[in-house]
Every structure is written in structure tokens, then in C-alpha cells.
Design a protein around this nucleic acid. Structure first.
Length: 870
DNA sequence: TCCTATTCTTGAATT
DNA sequence: AAGAATAGGA
């Protein structure tokens, strides 16, 4: 709990005696040696750290020490006395990244960084600013941050009020549109009329406006508002903007390529500096204020400077130049921009020096992660993109192993092959923690999971639905929200009938009418209605109990710790019981999550504080303590690294994703390619790519074509290998003259205008081929291949081929081979529980291999160590 | 109010 | 093919 108010406390070794006037001289005198924290940096990194004045863009390629530069830069600013911790604004996208920075800063400075109040995510900082000036956005400072569920529920009500068929115009779609507008910094009045009209027969714009009104009434904001309302406040109140501009002497932005327009505008407003604001002045400021204590009041001198005109909303392709920008440092990599689909504007990074004139651009191109072959492959691939700033990653590491490309007959063989390679790596002494499988689409994971369960290979899935998005967490939060603010209608509505209390739609509708007539919150309406005869006795009694319970909990709140209160609420409401009674596979996990939620409340002082931050901060960190293979999407792999990376599913349609191509055209293709680049650059020593000839897409088997990206890999760095999962190609390697056969026609045609349609036709043709009996395969290769699968006989057509895949996904021979011979502690018809498949009954015992009929998941073969007695 | 039948949808997933 | 989400009927 050390607050870093005294720069001299920062660290004994690295920070000189703090004489502001002499600080520069001292620094210069030391320049040849430099402070300790600079010593390990290469020249470019060092330049990025030491260029403190003016806008800086650091183009940090994968594995070039981006986070290190950011944290060292902060340390440098502090140690040079350029600013105090509270005067540095440092934004990231994810809580994880923010935590990581805090952690590393702590290591560098020698203690916890409690004194960096403005290091956080865009949304947490935006929210913090909004809470400070909430009244200017017609909100109270304790406003609720809505989750997507609440948002959709609210929009549904609005659609109903407008008599719009929410079948034809789903609330989710509107939520998406509004989110998109907010990402682009557009208030309701600024939405281009044409766009606003596309929803609900021209009512889109009006709905957006009334949604905003409703939010104010509910004292709520959505994620977009946390930035958008800030922007509006900054524009309408130049004095407030000026306060922040003066407070933030230095701005640092992580992952700049992922910023959307709203974030860009927000940053630019904050980064405009009053013109007399020069660095020597800053130093003086710090010095004089240090004696004055924490006070942040700006000097009169600075206030005299007229503010610069607000930036205009971004017009198409036209951005206003901001004449005076202060010390903003954005770090990013245009080649790793993979979030265009959720509003990120690669343009922000591509146009940085236009937006921030006089910007210094520093390229970090020395890669410290991957071997030569991997880096060459990744660089060669990404070089096919046109819209990029251009970097050439290089390494001093050895060439290492070539990137492998392996073809399989189908996705199951692919999974089997990868499973075997992993076991082999394991035998060679590789840590499972250093092995990752990166897929394009999450549905690819299932096959691997099935395979790993069969093999008894520990794995962990990273990503997926977020912790606080889970139904049980949101339910629990809704209870707490109603206790905290009785006017939270959305929360109340969510839980009135959870667990079931016989308060269905009819009752809720009635409450709504009542509430609207009297202009009171739902909860108060409930309290009133209970006193009348308007409800049936059963519902009435039930509702009365609910009201009484909440009254009691609210009274208890004063005298009970908030964690205890949460536990009491969950128990007394019957919510815990509801899940205890539930026999479905994930009930146990849900109860565990609830426990975790209560536990996580301890970090907050009280209920209020907890609720304010929960929607912004809640994420679960998977326990990384066990040695396990990581399984995740390419997207969630960004920022991570592993010794061994497996990249399955490099097929046209899947990767690059057909849908991206259809929707985004060339830009989409480039984003997919960047995704490939991200995938390859995650690998330190081994990168292994796979493609399958047949894959089941939405239930039907299709023949697929190797990804065009395979042809874009440099031959010199790539080795084509045999699938180890059984030779699918009759042992010939079967790739024909061109390395990836069909690719030749493709590689040359995809740049022409007609390529998209050709693409669509082709995959359509494939689908048809796959469905027609016996047509989808070439020659007899399949039969031979099939005979090596024990779970499938030589099925003559794809129809039975697919049905053959059901049931136990197991290869008998391997199971026997793996069997340890020890007898299992389980016996026939034992009731067991499995982490993933839930409850089931043992139907067969074979050594330590059990066949279990799961209640939900069907029959599976699993290793006994994966189940416990139910 | 609950249960069943039908329809829809199936890319990534922060805050 | 399968799961979720809805609508409609008992």
C-alpha cells in the first residue's frame, strides 16, 4: 500500500537524487551508462523509452518487447521527475494487460504500484471520469454499467412500445447497431440518416435516442457510454477538459491498432495540450508542487491559455489536424490488428503521423521470441498484405526447425495426429504448458477435447464466455443490485422469478403497467400491488415474500459484511438451492462460480464499490498451476507465447473464414492474414500447421481446399510432412505438383474481381459433392485410410461416414496400449461425475479406462482419473 | 405456468 | 447435427 507520491522513494538504485533542475544534467551525465533499468534495452527500445517529448508511435512487432518498453518508459518518466505517478495516463484494452503492466512496473520499481491511479483499461478510466462528472450526463455517480443482457432486455421493451415486430427486427441487432455507432463516436443526432433508417422501417435513430433517455432514467450507462459521454462532457465543458489535459502530462496507449473511433477521439481530446505547455515547465511544476503536497490544482498561468477548438467528429476520410499535442506515446502493431469486426480502426495507427503532426515513429523489429524459420514464415506471409506500415522482423536466434505443414484426411485424423505429436513432445521432456493449439473457430476445439479426454492428456481451454457473463453470476449480481438500488428495474426483472416463484410474465407485465402509471420503480410497484387484490392469491403471497426478503436484506446490509450478505442472499433466496437441485453437467461448476464471486467480493470495501467495478473488472484467470496443453482461438492467443504451437484447420472457408471474406472482402482477407501472422508469431521454437481435406461444417461433411495462406509461406522455411494420425493419403504424401494442389488455380485468381463469387461457387460445389453419395473423395485413398480408424469401418459414403463418428470417439488399439493394467477403483454401474461431461454411469471397465453413459453427453470413454464418484 | 415443438443459428468475444 | 431460443398448446 505504498503511495508513490514521493519520486525519491521510487527506487534507490535507479533514481537519482531528485533535484528537478539538475535532473536533466544528472541524466545526461549518466547517459553512456544509464540508469539500471535502461541497460537491457536495445537502441530502438531505448529510443522509444527516452523520447519523452511530443507524440511517439512505437511500431512494435510481435515479440519485440512492447510491454517492456511501455513499463520502462513509465519508470523513466518517473525517475526523471517529468511527472508524478498520478499525472500519467496509461491505457490498455484488457484488465489482464493492465494487471500485467502494474505487475511489471512493480518489479521494476521495487514495490507495488498503488500510486498509478490512471493506469487501467479505456473503460475503467472512462468510467471513472464519467462518475466524477455524472451529473453532466444526467446520471448519478453511482450509475450501473449495463451488461449485454440488460441492454437487450431494455431494447426489447422499447421495440414493444414502438410496436415493432422484434422477430423481424431483433433487439440484439439493434444493440449491435447502437454499439457500432457508439464505437464510432456517434451520438443519436449524429448518426447518418441513411444508417439510422436501416432498422425498424426508419425508426433506428429514434430508438437509439429513446434508449439513451431510458438509460438516464434508470441511472445506467452501457460500455460505449463510458467513453462517449466523456467525449460529450469534454466537448461541452472545456474547463473540465482542460483539467484533465493539465493533469495528464504523459499519455501511454497499449495496442493502439485496436482502438476504435470513440477511443481515438477520447485520446485526442485528452492529448491536446495548452500551447504554453512545455516540458521544462512541467518539471518546474512537479518540483513546486511536491512541496505543496497532493494538490492538483492547475496554476493560473496555464489556465490563461485558450483551449483549442474541439475536434470535430470524424468525417469520412477527413480528420482534423490537432496543432498541439503533448506527450502521447502509442504502442501497437498494425500487423496484429485482428479486431476490425468489433469496431477497431486500423486506420488509427496507419494515420498516426497525420493525426499527431511531428510524431516520431520508432520501429521495433528485433524479435526475441521465435527462431529464424518461424519468423521468416510469418514475415513472408504478412508481406502479402498491402495496407501496412511495413516492418521487417529479424532475429539473432538460430534458424531452428522449419515450420511444418501437414495434411490429413479429415478433422478427426488431424486431432489424432496432433495428439500423438504432443505425446511425443511430452516424451521428449517438453512441458505441456509450453504447448498450445490455436484454432480459428471455437467449434474446432471440440474435436481436440474429445481426443485429449480419450488420451488422458491434461488440457485447458482459454477464453470462451466470460466469467461475469455467466447466467448464475448475473443472477447473483442482480440480487445485489436490487438491494443496492431498489430502482434498478432491469435487475429486479431478471430475478423476480429466479428461482421460480410463480411470478411469470403476467405478473411482471402487471407490475410494469402499475409502475408506468405511477412513475415508480418496479420494486415499489410490487410493494404497492401486494396490498391490493389485483393479483391472484398465490402470486400475491409470493411477491409479498420477495418484497419482505429484500427489505430484510437491506436492513441487514448495515450490520453485515458485504461478503456475508451475499452469501445470505444466495442462500435465503433459494438461489443456491436451485443449482444444488439441478442435476445437469454444469451445475457444480456454477455453484463453484458463485463461491468464486463471493470470494472476489473481498477485494472491495463494500457492496457499492463492488457493484461499480464488477462489470469492468471481473474476469477469471484460469488456474495455470497444472501442466496442461492450452487450447484457444487465434484471437485469444494474441499476446501469449509458447515453445510449441499447433495451428490446425488451415483450409479455405475456415481460415481464411468465408464469412469474413464475404462481408469484408479484401480488408477481411488481410485481417485473416494478420490472424495467421499472429498465430505463427506465438511460437518460440516450433510452429506446426495442419489442414484437413474433409471437415464437417454445420453438420455436413464438405471437402475443403488447403488455405491460400499455405501457398504464401516461403518454401525455404517450410517442411511438408506426413500426418502421424494414420496415412490418409495412401502414403504418397499426395500433394501433387503444386505444393497444395488446388491452390494454384486459387492463388492466381483471388485478386481478380470475380474471386469472391468463384470462391462461393466452389464451396457450394464442394458441399454438394460432399453430400452426394460417394462423390466427394478421390480414388481409393479413403478406403485405406478408413481401415486404420477402428471407430469407422470402410464406409462407402459420406452419409454413413458422418454417422459413424458418433458414439465413443476412441481407438481401441490405443486404449489397450495405453492401459496401465492396474484395475480401476470404479466398477460397473457406478455413478460418477466428470468435469466436462457431468454425471453418468459406468457401463464398462477396462483397466483404468472406463466407458461411461453420461446423462447429457452420451457414451464416452474416459480415463478413470478424470472422474470422481458422484 | 410449464412443457413441447418448432425455428433459427451456427467468426472471433474486451469492456 | 446440435444447441439455443422462442412460440404455442395443455
Amino acid at each position: 500500500m505504498i503511495r508513490m507520491t514521493e519520486p525519491s522513494k521510487i527506487t534507490a538504485q535507479s533514481i537519482p537524487d531528485h533535484q528537478p533542475a539538475a535532473g536533466g544534467i544528472a541524466a545526461r551525465a549518466r547517459a553512456s551508462v544509464g540508469p539500471k533499468y535502461l541497460s537491457g534495452l536495445n537502441p530502438e527500445q531505448r529510443e522509444a523509452v527516452e523520447t519523452l517529448d511530443g507524440p511517439v508511435l512505437v511500431l512494435a512487432g510481435a515479440g519485440t518487447g512492447k510491454t517492456r518498453v511501455l513499463t520502462t518508459r513509465i519508470a523513466h518518466i518517473l525517475s526523471q521527475g517529468r511527472a508524478r505517478p498520478s499525472e500519467i495516463l496509461s491505457v490498455t484494452f484488457t484488465n489482464k494487460a493492465a494487471r500485467e503492466m502494474k505487475h511489471r512496473l512493480g518489479l521494476m520499481l521495487g514495490h507495488a504500484v498503488e500510486g498509478m491511479p490512471w493506469l487501467g483499461t479505456f473503460h475503467s478510466i472512462g468510467g471513472r471520469i464519467l462518475r466524477t462528472h455524472a451529473e453532466l450526463a444526467q446520471l448519478k455517480s453511482n450509475f450501473t454499467v449495463l451488461d449485454v443482457d440488460d441492454q437487450v432486455r431494455l431494447l426489447k421493451q422499447l421495440l414493444q412500445a414502438e410496436n415493432i415486430d422484434d422477430k423481424r427486427w431483433p433487439a440484439r441487432m439493434l444493440a449491435g447497431l447502437i454499439d457500432g455507432w457508439k464505437n464510432r463516436g456517434l451520438m443519436p443526432s449524429q448518426v447518418p440518416p441513411g444508417e439510422a433508417a436501416v432498422f425498424g422501417n426508419g425508426k433506428g435513430g429514434k430508438l437509439y435516442a429513446s434508449y439513451q433517455e431510458r438509460l438516464k432514467i434508470l441511472n445506467a450507462a452501457d460500455f460505449g457510454d463510458l467513453l462517449l459521454e466523456d467525449i460529450r462532457i469534454f466537448r461541452e465543458h472545456p474547463d473540465i477538459l482542460r483539467q484533465y489535459q493539465q493533469r495528464f502530462k504523459y499519455i501511454l496507449v497499449d495496442e493502439y491498432q485496436d482502438t476504435n473511433v470513440a477511443q481515438y477521439l477520447w485520446l485526442r481530446l485528452l492529448s491536446q495540450a495548452p500551447s504554453s505547455f512545455t516540458s521544462p515547465r512541467v518539471r518546474g511544476e512537479v518540483a513546486s508542487r511536491r512541496d505543496a503536497g497532493e494538490g492538483d490544482s492547475p496554476s493560473t498561468e496555464l489556465l490563461e491559455t485558450a483551449p483549442h477548438p474541439d475536434p470535430l467528429p470524424v468525417k469520412d476520410g477527413e480528420r482534423e489536424k490537432s496543432p498541439h499535442t503533448k506527450n502521447i506515446c502509442c504502442v501497437g502493431d498494425d500487423d496484429q490488428s485482428i479486431y476490425g469486426w468489433r469496431g477497431a480502426e486500423v486506420d488509427n495507427i496507419l494515420r498516426f503521423d497525420h493525426d499527431f503532426p511531428g510524431a516520431k515513429v520508432i520501429r521495433l523489429e528485433r524479435n526475441y521470441r521465435s527462431t529464424g524459420h518461424i519468423l521468416a514464415a510469418a514475415s513472408h506471409l504478412i508481406a502479402h498484405n498491402e495496407g501496412r506500415l511495413g516492418k521487417t522482423l529479424r532475429t539473432e536466434d538460430q534458424d531452428g526447425e522449419k515450420v511444418t505443414v501437414t495434411g490429413s484426411w479429415d478433422s478427426e485424423e488431424e486431432a489424432r495426429g496432433i495428439g500423438e505429436e504432443i505425446e511425443q513432445l511430452q516424451r521428449q521432456g517438453e512441458k505441456l504448458n509450453e504447448i498450445a493449439i490455436l484454432v480459428r473457430a471455437s467449434y474446432q476445439m471440440r474435436e481436440f477435447e474429445d481426443r485429449f479426454v480419450t488420451l488422458g492428456l491434461p488440457y485447458r481451454v482459454i477464453g470462451g464466455p466470460r466469467f461475469y457473463e455467466r447466467a448464475e453470476i448475473r443472477d447473483a449480481l442482480a440480487y445485489l443490485r436490487v438491494i443496492n438500488s431498489p430502482a434498478d428495474d432491469l435487475a429486479f426483472e431478471r430475478i423476480v422469478n429466479v428461482p421460480k416463484r410463480g411470478l411469470g410474465d403476467a405478473t411482471v407485465q402487471m407490475l410494469h403497467d402499475h409502475a408506468r402509471k405511477r412513475r415508480i420503480p418496479l420494486f415499489e410497484a410490487a410493494r404497492a400491488v401486494v396490498e391490493t387484490d389485483e393479483l391472484k392469491p398465490k402470486a400475491r403471497g409470493s411477491l409479498r415474500d420477495v418484497v419482505a426478503q429484500f427489505d430484510r436484506w437491506r436492513a441487514q446490509r448495515e450490520i453485515t459484511a458485504h461478503t456475508d450478505l451475499a452469501q445470505i442472499v444466495l442462500d435465503e433466496s433459494g438461489y443456491t438451492e436451485m443449482w444444488q437441485k439441478d442435476r445437469s453437467a454444469d451445475a457444480a461448476g456454477r455453484l463453484e462460480n458463485l463461491k468464486e464471486l463471493v470470494r472476489s467480493m473481498e477485494e472491495f470495501e463494500n457492496l457499492q464499490g463492488f457493484l461499480e467495478h464488477i462489470s469492468l473488472v471481473m474476469d477469471r484467470d484460469g488456474g495455470a498451476e497444472d501442466d496442461a496443453v492450452s487450447l484457444m482461438t487465434l484471437h485469444s492467443a494474441k499476446g501469449l507465447e509458447f515453445d510449441n504451437v499447433f495451428l490446425p484447420g488451415w483450409e479455405e472457408g475456415l481460415f481464411p473464414s468465408q464469412r469474413t471474406l464475404d462481408e469484408q472482402g479484401r480488408a477481411g482477407l488481410e485481417e485473416e492474414r494478420r490472424l495467421g501472422h499472429v498465430g505463427l508469431t506465438r511460437a518460440r521454437r516450433r510452429a506446426k500447421i495442419y489442414f484437413a481435406t474433409n471437415r464437417r461444417i454445420h453438420g455436413t461433411w464438405s471437402t475443403t481446399i488447403p488455405s491460400r495462406f499455405l501457398d504464401e509461406l516461403p518454401a525455404a522455411n517450410v517442411e511438408i510432412t506426413e500426418s502421424k494420425g494414420g496415412s490418409a493419403w495412401g502414403g504418397t504424401g499426395g500433394y501433387g505438383a503444386s505444393r497444395f494442389d488446388d491452390m494454384e488455380a486459387f492463388g492466381s485468381s483471388y485478386t481478380t474481381p470475380g474471386w469472391q463469387r468463384a470462391q462461393a461457387n466452389r464451396s457450394q460445389a464442394n458441399r454438394n459433392r460432399g453430400q452426394a453419395t460417394g462423390q466427394g473423395r478421390d480414388g481409393g485413398g479413403f478406403e485405406e485410410a478408413a481401415s486404420s480408424f477402428s471407430s469407422s469401418s470402410s464406409s462407402p459414403d459420406f452419409g454413413s461416414f458422418s454417422s459413424r463418428r458418433r458414439g465413443p470417439l476412441t481407438i481401441e488399439g490405443e486404449l489397450v496400449a495405453k492401459s496401465t493394467g492396474t484395475t480401476s477403483e470404479f466398477s460397473l454401474s457406478d455413478r460418477v461425475f466428470h468435469q466436462k461431461f457431468g454425471y453418468g454411469r459406468v457401463t464398462k471397465v477396462d483397466g483404468n479406462k472406463l466407458t461411461i453413459a453420461f446423462d447429457k453427453a452420451g457414451e464416452k470413454k474416459v480415463v478413470d482419473s478424470f472422474v470422481q464418484r458422484a
